[in-house]
Structure formats: C-alpha cells, structure tokens
Nucleic acid binder design. Structure first.
Lengths: 220, 220
DNA sequence: GCTCGTATGATACAATTGTTTGGACGGTTT
DNA sequence: AAACCGTCCAAACAATTGTATCATACGAGC
C-alpha cells in the first residue's frame, strides 16, 4: 500500500536522472537518496527503465504547455483580457516560457530532464516527448494566425517560431559559454530570462512587420 | 611502432562516441569495430577516458574555426576580396558555418560529438571546448565591430550573435521536432542549411539596421 | 489468535563494465 | 644463435551494473 516509498523513489530519481542522464545514474544511488531498499525500484516499477519512463512522464505533464498559455480558441478573450493588443499578449507568453525554462527553483531539474530528452531522446520516452512538443508548437503557430496575413506561407511562420525558441534554447544549452564570453555583471544586468525573451520577440516583430495582417481581427 | 592500430581505434571510436556518448559506449564495441584486441585501448591510450579526450581533441581541432573564416585583421582584404560589401561577406560566413553544422558527409559524427559536448560537457574535455568556443565567438564579435556603430553596447552585439547561432543550433538539436511539425516536402524545400542561415542573417540585418554605422569603413 | 497477502530488507545473482596479466609472435641487435 | 624489444592476443580480473531471491515483518480479516 504505502505509496510513500514509491513517491520517495520518484522524487529522488528525478533530479538524479536530470543531472546524470539515464545510463549515468545507478539504481543504487537512487535508492540511497530515497532511503529505500535496493529491491524497491524493481518491486514498484519493474525496472529502471520503467521508473525513468514514469519520472519523465510525470515531469513533463506537470509543466504547463503552451496550449494552456494560449488558451482555448473559445475562451481566448478571457485569457487575454488583461492585454490590450496582440503584441503584448504574445510577448507575455514568450517571456513566461523563458522564465519557466530558466527557473532556478526546485523545479530546475525538470527543465534539465526535458532538455536532456530534447537533445538526446531516449527510445522509451521519445514518443511522449514528441506529442507534447508537437502540441506545444502547433498551439503557438495557430496563435500566429491572428498576426500574419493569410497569404504568408506556413514555412515562414515556422521559421519565426524556431528563431524565437532557438534564441532562448541557446542560452539554456550554451549558457556556460555565455558566462565565459562576458563579465559576470554584464550577464546579470542584460541577460535575464525576461530580457532574452523580449529581445527575441522584438526581433521577431521588427522582422515580421511587413507580413502582418492589414486589418487586425483582434476584438479587444 | 605500428600507428595503424592506434589510428584504427581513433577512427572507430569517433562515430561511436558521437552516437552513444562517453558512458554509453563500451571499449569492447570500439575494439570490435576497429578489429583490434580488447587490451589495445589501454595499451595505446591508457584508459577509455584518455581515448575519448584524444578523439575529441583531434575532432574539434580538425574543424575550421570562425577565426579562420573571418581571417586575420591584416589580410582581411584578401579573404574578403570576393565580396563587395560587408553584408554579403557576413552572410557567407554564417551560411558556411550552417552548412558545416548540417553536413551529411562522413564528418557528420564530428558535429554530433561537439554538440554532445556543448549540451552536456564532459569534465575531461570541458576546458578544451571552452577555449575553442570562446575564440570562435570572439572572432565573430570583433567582426561585427565593422558593422555596428561604436556606441552600440557589447551586450547588444552578443544578443545578435546568440540569436543567429541559436536559430541554427535549434534545427540541429530539435531537428526531429521540426521534421514532425511539417510535411517532409516543405522541410526539404524551405529548410535547407543555407535557407536557415540566410533567414537568421536577414532577420539580424533588419533588426540591427538602426544601429548600423553611419559611415562604412569598409574599403573595398 | 491465526492466517494470508503485501511490504521491506539483506543478500545473491548473472551480466557487463574497464582494466590487467602473462605469454606468444616477429623483427632487430648483439 | 641468443637476447631483447615493442606489439599483439586470449584470458582473467575486480568492480559495478540491474535484477532476482528468499526470509522476515507487518497488518487487516476471519
């Protein structure tokens, strides 16, 4: 019955998997941190791989997808009521995502784990990550329907999205390089998650301005 | 004496390390592919880790750094003589780097190995990668001296550089997602390495235009 | 109070890991 | 020809891995 052991294992395994990857972590270390017996993992999860799968699933499903940030098409107005125009709304979404990615809180390992899977997908979790990512990016793309004129081709929108995401992802993956390239105070002053996101969005707006809808369909 | 064994090991180890990572590859597999005895690795390199270090070092030192693409400040004219303005020259550099990153040739594993180290640095090779990357990015930054007006602060230049690189890196790391998000023919038609690079550069030029030098110092 | 099924624990297991060993081979030197 | 060297091999090594085993402890239900 005692779910506490199962939970303790998951909570211990998450950060370790995130830091060392699947093949880099040992069940012994997990059990040691979780203060449970060696056999507990196989007893509750069947195998190390199953544990990883469960950890990853519960991790990414705890993250708020963009689909939620964007909101349902029907009740968009309610989600967006706080913003008076599309630009502010879009900007806010990206900033929030950036802040999430660079979170320094306890949930930091969650992002690490997901990025590990993005950069080097595990065969057992690749599918789950895929559907998650696809849903996410598709939501963002359809949001841009409002921004772009109808005749603007899809590939252009994707390029814009990937450019924004790429900019943010870069600081995540190559953050150590950024740290080495400039004095620490410059980084602290000008490269906060929010500033990074705002820069990316601004660049997007200036570059994409010529392709904007003539008549805004956003009723406030 | 016989260097052929040593070389065969390095050549076999490269692609395997690139694909499976350090902890994911076994010395047995390397020896099997290289068709040498188990003991050969320890005989010639001392340890698996030393082998990895040597493989990585020889890999990244075989890649042309940006410093070379940019050219020495003195003989820049010669390197750049083929281009009539800065924009074309800069664009060409980025495109060439993008093509290198997405190379499908035999050297594909080299990029894989380097990206693996970028995303998840190994303690034993982190330093080498660092100095390499720093040299690389610094060269690109100093190239932009010609473009930007002197009063434009460094952090802005860095943001521009990271934006360009991030866009390109994104397709490398999340390429599998890109593949799932759109029909294959759209990807093939609009997302070649060159097109990706050109888009990033163009976005840069439009966004950075207001901060451009008034008087071009580039003597043709 | 006894029983039965679940939960936990210490330990063993088989497989795989990187590394080491001792000797055989082949060519060069003395 | 004998001694010697670097090279290479088959096998073994110790350590670590994920997993399985078996016994015990616990607790609810009859």
């Amino acid at each position: 019955m005692s779910e506490t052991v199962k939970i303790r294992i998951i909570e211990a395994a998450g950060p370790i998997f995130a830091q060392k990857g699947f093949s880099g972590t040992t069940v012994r270390e997990i059990c040691s941190v979780a203060k449970v017996n060696q056999a507990a993992i196989n007893y509750y999860f069947g195998s190390k791989e199953n544990l990883y799968k469960e950890v990853f699933t519960s991790t990414y499903s705890s993250m708020k997808p963009w689909a939620d940030l964007v909101g349902d098409p029907e009740k968009q107005t309610e989600v967006r009521s706080r913003f008076e125009n599309f630009d502010d709304f879009f900007s806010d979404i990206v900033v929030r995502r950036a802040k999430e990615i660079f979170a320094t809180e306890l949930s930091r390992w969650k992002i690490q784990l997901i990025f590990r899977e993005i950069n080097d997908p595990t065969p057992c979790c690749g599918d789950r990550l895929q559907e998650y990512i696809i849903r996410d990016y598709t939501a963002l793309n359809s949001l841009l329907d409002e921004y772009f004129a109808p005749e603007i081709p899809q590939e252009f929108r994707w390029k814009c999205i990937f450019s924004i995401m790429g900019s943010i992802f870069f600081y995540k993956s190559s953050g150590w390089a950024v740290r080495k390239l400039m004095p620490e105070d410059m980084r602290q002053k000008h490269f906060s998650p929010e500033q990074i996101a705002v820069f990316a969005v601004k660049q997007f707006f200036t570059a994409a301005a010529p392709y904007r809808r003539k008549h805004q369909t956003v009723e406030k």
